[in-house]
Design a protein around this nucleic acid. Sequence first.
DNA 1: CGGAAATTTGGAAGCGCTTCCAAATTTTGT
DNA 2: ACAAAATTTGGAAGCGCTTCCAAATTTCCG
Lengths: 347, 347
Amino acid sequence: MDRKPTIDDVASAAGVARATVSRVLNASPNTSERVRERVMKAVHDLNYQVNQQARQLASGTSRLVALIFAADAETEPNSYYHSAVELGAMRACSELGYGLVTHTLDPAAEKDHSRILLLADNSRCDGLVLTPPFSDDDALIRALQQRGFPFVLISAGPDARRLSCSVGIDDRQAGFELGAHLLQKTHRRFGFISGPRDHKSAALRLQGFLDALAGAGLNDDATVIAEGNFTFKSGTDLAGQLLAGPDRPTALVCANDDMAAGALFTAHRLGLNVPADLSITGFDDTPVSQIVWPPLTTIHQPLRLIGSKAIELLVANVMRENGASDPVCAEHLVPFHLIERESTALR
Amino acid sequence: MDRKPTIDDVASAAGVARATVSRVLNASPNTSERVRERVMKAVHDLNYQVNQQARQLASGTSRLVALIFAADAETEPNSYYHSAVELGAMRACSELGYGLVTHTLDPAAEKDHSRILLLADNSRCDGLVLTPPFSDDDALIRALQQRGFPFVLISAGPDARRLSCSVGIDDRQAGFELGAHLLQKTHRRFGFISGPRDHKSAALRLQGFLDALAGAGLNDDATVIAEGNFTFKSGTDLAGQLLAGPDRPTALVCANDDMAAGALFTAHRLGLNVPADLSITGFDDTPVSQIVWPPLTTIHQPLRLIGSKAIELLVANVMRENGASDPVCAEHLVPFHLIERESTALR
DNA sequence: CGGAAATTTGGAAGCGCTTCCAAATTTTGT
DNA sequence: ACAAAATTTGGAAGCGCTTCCAAATTTCCG
């Protein structure tokens, strides 16, 4: 059995030195056309493939980036959201010649960040993409920055966005538009099922929503707030509470589609007609919003784009050849828009 | 700046040779207790972490496994299914000290398998887990086997299961139970929304279903079959067709939950009451089946378990130290069960 | 207690690549 | 046409680890 060809095989086949082959393969600027052609021919003839392990060891990079999601042990992860972001990231990675390693970790079990930091310290990857609530974790961000390890944040809160490179929508404005939409439908009493407190960008959505109401002269008493955890179940439970009282809201605003679907489920259970008796809105425009009946009015977030953009920014940061230039540290805003479907109507 | 400690630093700190440290770190049997302790102390004192790149180059393994999903460019992937399998795989990987790289590829664009085979040839991973329809792709399986590259199949059809190591449920039996359930609910006219033809295990479900009917004296005319592609949209469209005729079925059996949700959506659109006018069943018991109204009767597949089991089998195959023992080639059956919810009722 | 067998340890040769530096070659300017 | 500058090429030193083999040590048993 003849082993796989190595760079030396290519070198001798092309009649050049190993270093020259390496230069050609790495698109180094200093190679003559003649030699490049000879080398490429040899590469082709031998069907040579670089050994990534060796390249990685020699160059000190892994050409792997990690994408970190949160999910605690018992609850299902927010799959559509994750999948969409992951898919975008995956596409960008294969475009850029990077591999993507996804990790789903329990934030509660990750308070010391050891597993995340291990990825960095272990050089098992060249960079990190963090999703909420990790993207709002100050201590983690600082630890990463101190190590000079490249990372990009997805849907981080305002504080974190100020500190580092991030991708996301204008959450406050999205919340505002939701409020405006419902106001225009003449609603005046609201329930808001928010995300967990440590999810800063979800909190911003609430803020924007309340701002919209304030603009219409409604104070915060118009809105009863319940804190969910982004799961369908928390949506059903919290909607049950919110809808129990005597003076019940005519519209329920939910911080993601899964919880909205849960609220819708409860509405069905209670025999309420959506949207005639109750309007419900979601957030994200994941497929869930079109699977339920009636389909949900929601905010469309370009999740795949967010995923791919995050990778692009990350790789740009990883790549910065000259130790001179600081890592790109920009807040990258992507567009969102409200999609009106059949779950909202005039009161 | 002091660079990261290497194995040599540990060796000199512990007063032993580099090879000895390596042995201790790799749990080689031939090390004395005294030395092991000294080495571990040095490792701890220096906060030493092995450099994976170097280990990989020297040992010729990557300690990475790849999980391959299918999704064509335009349609959303079957996210809950993917996520659940991926999560199970991920957990098993971190348990076993492996990294997981997920690839979502378009089977149509992958006819020559070049990207998958590249993973193997490039030694970017030590093994592969294939999901449908890749797990039913004969040519691919053969190419992998010929290379002696370790892989495990998920939910493969009977042919592929015979050839190689696989994990999945007894699809035929699951289909049978679905048929029995509906028969018991006195249904006699059925619509079956199947998966794409190249998805062999989904075809088995249909077979099992028809067998159940045959057992009750019903021939194949009792069932109108439509071929979907596992998406919500194909469910809505096909249900529209199936429900259009004069003698419409009283029960719709769908090869996964997403299509069942689509069928349910169409039923709503048509003003049909589920389950009073029409029973609908799903398959997989993904969260979708509980998100829709009414929740779906479905077959529960332990998807996380399937994912983790696949990894365990794969790693066992990768690991086989002695070139002697052939790769484990077993059909690993995991349990499933029918979950009755509110989408099915007596006719 | 002595020598053979079993076990533990160390030395050293790679794994296949990148990259630094110096040598060889080509290009440029006068 | 010639020296100087710019560019291309080759040589060689690692990157940090595993693993083979031989040397050193310990264990075993008659």
